[in-house]
């Protein structure tokens, strides 16, 4: 069944989800997304009318299985090509702000 989401706090839900999705949304954008989320959720809630007991989910449009590749090394990109698009690189590495591990 549909989880109870306190519709009053969809703004909070948008904040939570935006953080999970690493979207730093400015505060003024939150209400708009909360409103859109509310409308879309109201629409998708109609799926609850259906009885789907025992129905297999469709994850793939075509029922194909066992698609494998052989364990054979193949050439990839040169390091120059790999790093060509990097916003920052040094010593053959993609550079990011210092990570505290």
């Amino acid at each position: 069944m549909v989880p109870d989401h306190p519709t009053s706090d969809l703004a909070g839900e948008v904040r939570r989800v935006a953080h999970l999705a690493r979207l730093a949304l400015p505060d003024e954008e939150i209400p708009r997304f909360a409103r859109d989320l509310e409308r879309i959720l109201a629409h998708v809630r109609q799926l609850q009318e259906l009885d789907v007991e025992g129905v297999e989910p469709t994850a793939h449009a075509m029922p194909v299985t066992n698609v494998f590749r052989a364990d054979e090394p193949r050439p990839g990109l040169t390091r120059e090509d790999a790093l060509a698009n990097a916003p920052a690189s040094r010593a053959g590495l993609f550079l990011v702000p210092r990570i505290l591990e």
Binding site: M1, V44, L47, Q48, L50, V52, E56, P57, T58, A61
Partner: peptide, 15 residues
Amino acid sequence: DAYYLRAQKVRTLIR
């Protein structure tokens, strides 16, 4: 379960 899984099941009904 309520959203994604249910949607995949209804996808089966549509198919």
